[in-house]
Amino acid sequence: QEELVKAFKALLKEEKFSSQGEIVAALQEQGFDNINQSKVSRMLTKFGAVRTRNAKMEMVYCLPAELGV
Results as ranks from 00 to 15, higher is better:
Gln1Met: 12
Gln1Ser: 12
Glu2Thr: 11
Glu3Lys: 13
Glu3Ser: 13
Leu4Thr: 03
Lys6Glu: 12
Ala7Lys: 06
Ala7Ser: 07
Ala7His: 06
Ala7Thr: 06
Phe8Gln: 00
Lys9Gly: 04
Leu11Gly: 01
Leu11Asn: 01
Lys13Gln: 11
Lys13Cys: 05
Lys13Val: 09
Glu15Lys: 08
Glu15Trp: 06
Glu15Gly: 08
Glu15Gln: 10
Phe17Pro: 03
Phe17Asp: 01
Phe17Leu: 06
Ser18Asn: 06
Ser19Val: 05
Ser19Ala: 07
Ser19Ile: 05
Ser19Phe: 09
Gln20Leu: 12
Gln20Thr: 13
Glu22Ala: 13
Glu22Tyr: 04
Glu22Asp: 11
Ile23Val: 03
Ile23Ala: 01
Ile23Asn: 00
Val24Leu: 11
Ala25Gly: 06
Ala25Met: 12
Ala25Ile: 12
Ala25Val: 10
Ala26Phe: 11
Ala26Pro: 00
Leu27Pro: 00
Leu27Cys: 02
Gln28Trp: 10
Gln28Cys: 06
Gln28Phe: 09
Glu29Leu: 12
Glu29Asn: 10
Glu29Cys: 06
Gln30Thr: 04
Gln30Lys: 10
Phe32Asp: 00
Asp33Asn: 13
Asp33Ile: 14
Asp33Gln: 13
Asn36Glu: 06
Asn36Pro: 05
Gln37Gly: 09
Gln37Val: 14
Ser38Tyr: 14
Lys39Val: 15
Lys39Tyr: 11
Ser41Val: 10
Ser41Pro: 00
Arg42Lys: 12
Arg42Asp: 14
Arg42Tyr: 14
Met43Ile: 03
Leu44Trp: 01
Thr45Leu: 13
Thr45Ala: 11
Lys46Met: 14
Phe47Thr: 05
Gly48Glu: 05
Gly48Gln: 07
Gly48Arg: 08
Ala49Ser: 04
Val50Leu: 08
Thr52Leu: 11
Ala55Met: 06
Ala55Tyr: 05
Ala55Thr: 08
Ala55Trp: 04
Met57Asn: 15
Glu58Thr: 05
Cys62Ala: 15
Pro64Asn: 05
Pro64Val: 05
Pro64His: 04
Ala65Thr: 11
Glu66Ala: 08
Glu66Phe: 08
Leu67Phe: 06
Leu67His: 12
Leu67Ala: 14
Leu67Ser: 14
Gly68Asp: 15
